[in-house]
Design a protein around this nucleic acid. Structure first.
Length: 844
RNA sequence: GCCGAAGUGGCGGAAUGGUAGACGCGGCAGUCUCAAAAACUGUUGAGGGGCAACUCUCGUGUCGGUUCGAGUCCGACCUUCGGCACCA
């Protein structure tokens, strides 16, 4: 007997043989009552919980599988969007469980963050109360899904037992010099009164949370050195992630390879004798005709001549006044001002005028740019506007010295470049770099768009950064034994938006751990993405209180085998978590490189033209559907509407169809089956359908194609309906079909199938049964429809045995009366044959 | 502007380069009923021909191409949605 399927490797799931007649026997009770989802769902949820059916241990002989879904933020209500994330992932986790894995599928709450604090300010509720009330409600709603969550492992990030370890990790990163305090221009949201990471500035430069325009401020803040890991984070070759997400991360990191080139400076009263620029095009160095500094560049005041001073200052003020939106608008005309001073191009000794222009950003590269108008479109526009010469040094093909109408950014032959003339620009790139490195004018260099991760937030509702400022000792970390640094419960929430911690004396005033003199605590709290960078480690070790996790248990479960969630986290959570794992690996805390081996992004649920979310005010709660049709119908519908990765507009048009179908399944299984007119063909067909359906459902499950899996199960029941009515198969074949149907449906509709499984005399629980296997020999068709085409157009169809030979098929096709009508009078040029599928007769 | 994904009936959607529209919703007709709902059965892409069993033509965003054969592959374009956006 042939055995197929991905579970071959795991003998302990060796199911009742797939050939089928020895599957558990069903005895159907005479009394077939109605399907009542409300009753059975409650009953089974309670029983599963009481029996600890879904609690997992690390001592299983089965291989582990860590199936993780991004934990929800404690907004207070679970909506259809949450179900769309959680129900299918539960189905997959259940499928893997039936496939013989020891499956960890935990749940928890991302519980720190601004909305809790806003509720405190606007409604006088303490953030803790607001959050924990929401947690309570969401727990209830999560339970109604009927998922296999192991609630003993629940994580709530705002509880001291959790954030103690968030703070501990901060200290470890600080010890490893991966956390530092530095001054930097930061994104400031005046409404939230806090800084934002670059990733949290969205759209046209507005705050991710409140849509307020973000402004720039210079502040001392805490940073993580994520840029140190830029290269490693660019590499997705060891993880199975959607290419789309990998590309988004790589674009965000934005690696540029080029050179750092030194320009000479000889300006009265300025000590600095060089300014460095970063360029990706060192091959165009001979085309430099101007030089640009960012308006905020510290050298600008010193390089401005007296007669240019007024104009330069005016321009700087003008730049500051612009919002990020205006300044970064691509189609804005390039503007700038000449400082009156010059740098020296070291390669040819020429004087190059220095400008400032707002299109040069202090935060990228060195904050200075060499202007090569002939080969950079921005520089080209700038040069045109200010009458700066445009010097071609990379000749485009066929160029005969005429003026360019736009910058030539492609490749070409080096010209006007002294000793490098005649080289291809690619060769010129290398030669010029070699030359500059030899002369000390510059060197090859790499720059990233990625900035260090700014984690300070001027808010109350977050994990306090465990640092102390002492007048004598400077910055002193809180000793590990003093963790957690607790949030003071009595802070005052003012509508000014300022952090309550700043004004909470009992919190701020402390003693220096080193010298014991009076000192002050850091009042900033950590970005919540810090909390979500390690929660999946905590799930492995519930309640551990002397270390963030149990090392053995961590080693058993990590890394996460499958992580599912929305693609909106591509450059925030997913990048931070990867960085965090690499950082603590380098601190010696763990020994793997990536947190999530496989990533799957489900689509977004849209409602009223927008992503469904509480903050957008367009949520649809599943509670009403659940109380009306049952959680099983909602689960089934969510998975049936389309491929999981696509998402789409929410409507409940078809949900009643799922309810109908589940009812049909109920009636079919509970009704007594009577053999009436058993016929060999139908018997064979029934068994074929059973095994074909197992094959289809298994393949679809593996690919997350839940919609087509359910369609296949529906086709199966559509086939079985008349069979049951007419009693045309043996009781054994019928029971095989029923057993298979329930097992295949078990992950999708866990309550209904459990009820029917036990009701028909099978041992509790269906969720401990192995996934059925198919027998390829039984699944195989023995007759197929042979399609006959003439010139690629369908002209006839005949039923033939699968074993038909090419010669037989050709003969059959040519002798068909229908076909003759199309071939008569034409010359047959060739005949294409696809085995047991199609004959195409090509005629003149 | 750049990167990515997607365009198929009234709707959600299905289809290893080989019968387009599986499955479900909705619609229509019927069974049951005093009637309705529920349930069940049949039917349902558009257009044409035939009393009929049937049959022909067109049809997967647009225009080309490759192929015996294209929803599927290639090129150009249009639309929608996500992401990035003066990154030197």
């Amino acid at each position: 007997m042939l055995r197929w399927g991905g579970n071959l490797r795991y003998p302990w799931v060796d199911a009742p043989a797939s050939a089928g007649y020895n599957l558990p026997v069903m005895s159907v009770s005479e009394k077939s009552d109605k399907y009542n989802p409300q009753e059975i769902e409650k009953k089974w949820q309670d029983k599963w919980a009481a029996d600890k059916l879904y609690e997992v241990k690390e001592d299983s002989p089965r291989p582990k599988f860590y199936a993780l879904t991004m934990f929800p933020y404690t907004s207070g209500d679970l909506h259809i969007g949450h179900w769309y994330a959680m129900a299918p992932s539960d189905v997959y986790a259940r499928f893997m469980r039936m496939q013989g894995y020891n499956v960890l599928h935990p749940v928890g709450f991302d519980a720190f963050g601004l909305p809790a604090e806003n509720a405190a300010i606007s409604r006088g509720i303490h953030p803790y109360t607001w959050t924990m009330n929401n947690v309570e409600n969401m727990r209830r709603q999560l339970r109604s899904i009927g998922a296999i969550y192991d609630w003993t492992r629940e994580v709530v990030t705002c509880l001291p037992e959790y954030y103690k370890w968030t703070q501990w990790f901060f200290l470890k990163l600080y010890e490893a010099d991966l956390a530092y305090r530095g001054e930097a221009p930061v994104n400031w949201c005046s409404k939230c009164q806090t800084v934002l990471a670059n990733e949290q500035v969205v759209g046209e430069g507005v705050c991710e949370r409140c849509n307020t325009a973000v402004i720039r401020r210079h502040l001392e803040q805490w940073f993580f050195r994520i840029t140190k890991y830029a290269d490693e984070l660019m590499d997705h070759s060891h993880i199975d992630w959607p290419e789309r997400i990998a590309i988004m991360q790589r674009n965000w990191i934005g690696k540029s390879t080029g050179a750092e080139i030194s320009f000479g400076l000889d300006h009265p009263g300025v000590e600095t004798k060089e300014i460095r620029v970063f360029t990706t095009r060192p091959d165009t160095i001979f085309g430099v005709t101007f030089f640009v500094l960012a308006p905020e560049h510290p050298l600008v005041p010193h390089l401005t001549t007296t007669e240019r001073k007024a104009e330069v200052e005016k321009y700087i003020i003008q730049t500051q006044r612009q919002t990020e939106i205006e300044r970064t608008s691509t189609d804005k005309e390039k503007t700038g001002v000449f400082l009156g001073s010059y740098v020296i191009d070291k390669l040819n000794g020429e004087k190059v005028p220095i400008f400032i222009a707002d299109y040069v950003l202090l935060s990228y590269g060195t904050g200075a740019v060499m202007g090569v108008p002939a080969h950079d479109q921005r520089d080209f526009e700038f040069a045109r506007k200010y009458g700066i010469p445009i010097k071609v040094v990379i000749a485009p093909e066929g160029w005969a010295g005429e003026d360019l109408t736009e910058a030539h950014t492609g490749s070409g032959t080096m010209a006007n470049s002294g000793q490098f003339n005649g080289l291809s620009n690619e060769k010129g790139f290398e030669s010029i770099c070699d030359y500059m490195e030899a002369k000390g004018y510059g060197k090859r260099a790499v720059t990233y768009r990625l900035r260090d991760w700014l984690i300070s937030r001027q808010r109350y509702w977050g994990a306090p950064i465990p640092m102390i400022y002492c007048d004598k000792c400077g910055i002193v970390p809180v000793p590990e034994k003093d963790l957690p640094v607790l949030l003071p419960p009595d802070a005052e929430f003012r509508p000014t938006g300022e952090s309550p911690l700043k004004y909470c004396e009992s919190f701020v005033n402390t003693t220096c751990p080193k010298c014991k003199s009076p000192a002050k605590r850091e009042t900033d709290t950590m970005d919540t993405f810090m909390c979500s960078s390690w929660y999946f480690l905590r799930y492995t070790s519930p309640g551990k209180d002397d270390y963030p996790f149990d090392k053995k248990k961590l080693k058993y479960w990590m890394p996460v085998d499958l992580y599912t969630g929305g693609a909106e986290h591509a450059v925030m959570h997913l990048l931070y978590a990867r960085f965090f794992i690499k950082a603590i690996r380098d601190c010696g805390i763990i020994d793997f490189d990536e947190p999530f081996l496989k990533l799957f992004n489900q689509g977004t649920v849209i409602y009223q033209g927008d992503k469904m979310s509480k903050s957008r005010g367009n949520v649809v709660t599943p509670d009403l559907y659940v109380s009306d049709l049952g959680a099983d119908a909602v689960r089934t519908y969510i998975m049936f509407v389309g491929p999981w990765e696509l998402g789409g507009e929410w409507n409940d048009n078809g949900i009643v169809g799922m309810s109908r179908w589940l009812n049909r399944v109920w009636n079919m299984v509970t009704a007594e089956y009577k053999e009436k007119a058993v016929d060999a063909d139908t018997e064979k067909e029934a068994r074929r359908m059973t095994h074909k359906t197992i094959r289809k459902a298994t393949g679809d499950m593996e690919r997350f194609r839940f919609n087509t899996m359910l369609a296949a199960l529906m086709e199966f029941t559509n086939f079985l309906g008349p069979v049951q009515e007419r009693g045309t198969v043996s009781k054994a074949a019928w029971q095989e079909a029923m057993t298979t149907l329930l097992l295949l449906l078990a992950p999708t509709a866990p309550h209904l199938t459990e009820e029917l499984w036990t009701k028909t005399g099978n041992p509790y629980s269906i969720h401990n049964q192995p996934w059925p296997k198919w027998d390829e020999a039984l699944a195989k068709e023995d007759e197929v429809m042979l399609v006959i085409q003439v010139n690629g157009k369908l002209r006839d169809k005949v039923t033939v045995p699968v074993s038909i030979t090419e010669a037989e098929a050709r003969e059959l096709a040519l002798n068909s009366e229908r076909i003759k009508a199309y071939t008569a009078g034409h010359k047959i040029i060739k005949i294409v044959y696809v085995p047991a599928k199609l004959v195409n007769i090509v005629v003149s």
